[in-house]
Design a protein around this nucleic acid. Structure first.
Length: 577
RNA sequence: UCGGGGAUCGUCUAACGGUAGGACGCAGGAUUCUGGUUCCUGCUAUUGGGGUUCGAAUCCCUAUCCCCGAACCA
């Protein structure tokens, strides 16, 4: 059998080591079959009533990357069919966030509201053909007539109004002569359908509210169901990709496309939306967290919003990488947060300069180091990438080290500071701790050490093994700063899993820990807001935008993996008397 | 009168009648001036029960479990 004999499978990639994406297969098959003239057009259709979060990021990546991969385009369309929600403030923010994520829609910026005229004309058309009617039942009655999962709906007494009457009533609605709730336009489909969406869905409702773009031109507005598919069709969207919850709407989506003379026939395909453990991803809940002050705002670094993540220091590349690795399938699930954390560390590890920062300073005095003497030492900003350059470290008699790097009684396998131990000050020198100074309360306030002048730069002059290496800052030029440590927002993996328990009760009370009096080296202190670095041996940090003159603030994006913590845990808690 | 989806390692995700693979995670080990990175090794899965077949995660039947749906929201 030769390669030519085998059935063509465009979806099969030669090196298939990436995660699954059945959408790619579908698109490839459609293109191979010559559908839509072999073109691909997707779209990301946010409703501008909230900020974007990681869940949206997945959808954004799917739509833009698929278009990219197949040489198509991806539109950005604001689904602004409901003027009772606040819009304006989000339009610009959403665009900023998508650009930050790394995607560009070029000139393809659209608004569903741009199609209101066409949508209205199509509604008239449907009425003329007896496929839609003006409903005069009250909202309560409409609900009652609709039935439920176990009870078929009943047809409205207004269902069989004449075309003329319907047209006249529609005109009255449009002209503002109807009150809100007084009338709607419904598609005449099937009140018996097992699919509730097909029980004469509402196409238009009266909303006497001005629209952020259309002004007060309209006082009736199309619903999502009536507007979305047709908007897709107008834009020539070939594949309308959405989340699983819209599955039941697909027959309706298709019904409108089939019964209307649309310029194209887009296909809706659903995929599983993203869920991540220990957080919530719903606009409603995110809004609640902000409004009730459980977080500081939409851009609180604990929030899963793009703005929050940006402020926290998470690079957009990490989010894209994460979305790609999660894959696309139809099976709903909850992605382990560690997958995201891995993508973040991977990106940060490859791109971030290494600097010294001490979160919990402990004074260290090198007793045999000449008073006032300074050793200037060149230290690389990256151990792996020389092109990142270097900065100068100033070794002096008095330094700060991390308090956690010292133990008065060293546990097993402890390589760091302890009485009598020799430790390397990274890129500095080797020092041996000979004396521990305590205050009246018995707390360690100072370590007195001696250095080996031959170890300048941190190398071991005679090749002797020094396993412990610690970061440090010179007391003379260290810059004071505030560091904000973040932990997961919720203390349980699925905060909304129990209907009887308010998810807010699962808020992690220690999701934010503020540390003051931290010390960073001058090079780091001079970095502009938004800069991302690694504090060696501690974690990745970004300069927060609360930073002002004389008040330097860092956000911990994520800690380094800490295999010592695992060893220590395995050894059991330190023995107390 | 219920309709629509889904079930593969702990977690995501492949395999499209022909060796159940990858990533994360976890456990060991090597290298290391970050207990970081990198590298190596190992770990664990086809929801249950029947069938069809030389051969089934895949096809059929059946049971079970999970998700979505009853806004004039999207």
């Amino acid at each position: 059998m030769t390669a030519d004999d085998r059935p063509i499978d465009a979806s099969k990639r030669e090196t298939d080591d990436g995660p699954g994406n059945f959408l790619r297969d579908v698109v490839a098959a459609d293109i191979a079959a010559g559908k839509n003239d072999g073109k691909l057009v997707t779209r990301f259709p946010p409703e501008p009533n909230g900020y974007l979060h990681v869940g949206h990021a997945k959808a954004i990546c799917i739509n833009f990357e698929l278009a990219q991969e197949f040489g198509g385009v991806c539109n950005l369309r604001f689904d602004d069919t409901n003027p009772t929600r606040e819009y304006e403030q989000y339009i610009e923010a959403i665009q900023q966030d998508i650009r930050w994520l790394g995607f560009d829609w070029g000139d393809n910026l659209y608004f569903a509201s741009d199609y209101f005229d066409q949508l209205y004309a199509w509604a008239v058309d449907l009425i003329k053909r007896g496929l839609a009617y003006v409903e005069s039942l009250t909202p309560e009655q409409v609900r009652e007539y609709r039935g439920d999962f176990h009870k078929p709906g009943r047809e409205s007494p207004y269902r069989d109004r004449s075309v003329e009457e319907n047209l006249a009533l529609l005109e009255k609605m449009r002209a503002g002569e109807m009150a809100e709730g007084e009338a709607t336009v419904r598609a005449k489909i099937d009140m018996q359908s097992g699919n509730m969406n097909m029980r004469d869905p509402i196409m238009y409702r009266v909303l006497k509210v001005a629209h952020h773009r259309a002004g007060d031109k309209w006082c009736i507005y199309p619903t999502y169901d009536y507007a979305h598919g047709q908007s897709d069709a107008i834009e020539g969207i070939t594949h309308s990709l959405c989340s699983l919850e819209f599955e039941g709407h697909r027959p309706l989506y298709d019904w409108f496309i089939e019964h209307l003379d649309t310029p194209s026939t887009p296909r809706q395909i659903e995929f599983a939306r993203l869920n991540i453990g220990y957080t919530v991803l719903s606009k409603r809940r995110l809004l609640q967290l902000v409004k009730e002050g459980h977080v500081a705002g939409w851009d609180d670094p604990r929030m899963p919003t793009l703005r929050g993540m940006r402020r926290r220091g998470i690079p957009p590349e990490a989010i894209r990488k994460f979305a790609d690795r999660v894959g696309v399938a139809r099976r709903p699930g909850v992605v382990d947060i560690s997958l995201f954390e891995h993508a973040i560390r991977e990106q940060l590890n490859a791109t971030t300069p290494r600097v010294f920062g001490v979160l919990d300073p402990l004074k260290l005095v090198i007793t045999n180091f000449p008073e006032g003497h300074v050793e200037e030492l060149e230290a690389p900003l990256s151990p792996e990438d020389p092109s990142m350059g270097s900065r100068t470290l100033r070794l002096t008699r008095e330094l700060f080290i991390e308090r956690d790097d010292f133990r008065e009684e060293a546990p097993k396998k402890w390589f760091r500071f302890a009485p009598g131990r020799e430790v390397r000050l990274r890129y500095g020198c080797l020092v041996t701790c000979n004396e521990v100074i305590k205050d009246e309360a018995g707390e360690v306030v100072e370590l007195r050490c001696t250095w080996d002048p031959d170890s300048k730069g941190g190398s071991s002059p005679d090749g002797r093994k020094v396993r412990g290496t610690s970061h440090w800052v010179s007391a003379a030029d260290a810059v004071d700063c505030e560091v904000r440590l973040y932990d997961r927002l919720f203390s349980v993996e699925n905060p909304t899993g129990d209907d009887d328990v308010d998810y807010l009760t699962h808020l992690n009370p220690s999701s934010l820990e503020v540390k003051r009096g931290c010390k960073v080296e001058p090079y780091a202190a001079a970095l502009p807001v938004g800069s991302r670095v690694q504090f060696e041996r501690v974690g990745y940090f970004a300069v927060d935008n609360d930073t002002a003159d004389g008040n330097l603030v860092w956000n911990r994006t994520i800690s380094l993996r800490d295999s010592w913590a695992k060893v220590e845990k395995k050894q059991g808690p330190p023995k107390k008397g």
